[in-house]
């Protein structure tokens, strides 16, 4: 397979030239092609925001739902049909702001889905307000005195909840990002990839070169099985590590825990209604 197998001819891409989303889209197509996943077996789930539009520019099934809620339908889709590869594409506002509660509880549930969060530390679709990951002193039309809320640390939160896969990528590094995407998609269980990306229009602080200057990759010998170490690395500020922080392959997934799949792996839509069972249940009420 080739990345262009995922192209949608004539798609009217609504992102700005130079937007980090464009690189993320290219990297994702490459990762999927290399993993040989067919578009028909893929479901992209998204919410609202610039990142939420990504599924419209890549071949696959799509559930583009409500702002902040993408993880809930993603969980439901995977639960109803575990044969599907489910990729949730979201932004920092959608996932960590509006959808914060679902973010926490989806980690606890551990469905076998990949959660890509485009993190540009600003709101794009609504034009330049602070996001949960905006850094202190960031000025916006609404935060006129600068942001004074603590910046949300998604990696630390995820590791604290023992998320089964936690990584951070930078959209500008295509090669490494492709590898992180592949590892996340292959991982069995919930996989978070927080992706640093520049917003060329609304974030003049955290620019492409700012990200280059303020990031570095975790050492080759970083032990991603060590949760305490991972947490410690996730709390580093100033210089931000990139790569796979933490991975716990021992956790069972949400679908594996569902009794409905213990004996039978068939997706729910293939199961037949059994009237005799119902009759027997009604008999017990006599």
């Amino acid at each position: 397979m080739k990345p262009k197998d995922f192209d949608i001819p004539g798609a009217d891409v609504a992102w700005c030239p130079g937007c980090g989303n464009l690189s993320i889209l290219r990297s994702l197509k490459t990762a999927l092609a290399e993993l040989k996943i067919q578009p028909e077996d893929l479901v992209f789930v998204s919410g609202i925001g610039q990142a939420g539009k990504l599924p419209h520019y890549i071949r696959g099934n799509v559930f583009n739902g409500l702002h902040g809620r993408s993880l809930s339908p993603a969980t439901g889709i995977k639960a109803a049909n575990p044969e599907l590869t489910v990729i949730d594409v979201s932004g920092d506002g959608c996932m960590y702001g509006e959808g914060g509660n679902h973010f926490m509880h989806t980690i606890r549930r551990n469905p076998d889905i990949t959660n890509l969060v485009h993190n540009n530390m600003v709101y794009g679709l609504t034009k330049g307000q602070a996001s949960p990951t905006s850094q202190r002193e960031f000025n916006t039309p609404l935060q006129v005195d600068g942001v004074f809320l603590e910046s949300f640390n998604p990696l630390a939160v995820a590791i604290a909840l023992d998320a089964s896969f936690v990584a951070r990528a930078f959209s500008g590094d295509r090669k490494q990002t492709i590898e992180i995407f592949k590892a996340a998609i292959k991982h069995k269980g919930y996989a978070l990839v927080d992706i640093f990306q520049p917003c060329v229009t609304f974030n003049k602080v955290n620019t492409r070169s700012w990200f280059r200057e303020h990031t570095y990759y975790l050492e080759d010998d970083h032990d991603s099985a060590d949760r305490n170490l991972a947490f410690q690395r996730a709390t580093e500020t100033g210089e931000y590590p990139l790569g796979v922080f933490y991975q716990n392959p021992t956790k069972t997934t949400f679908e594996e825990n569902l009794n409905v799949y213990y004996m039978d792996k068939k997706p729910l839509y293939q199961r037949k209604f059994d009237k005799e069972k119902l009759k027997r249940l009604v008999e017990t009420k006599r």
Partner: peptide
């Protein structure tokens, strides 16, 4: 709604 979209 996700489950329903997937046929359940």
């Amino acid at each position: 709604l996700g489950a329903s979209y997937a046929g359940a």
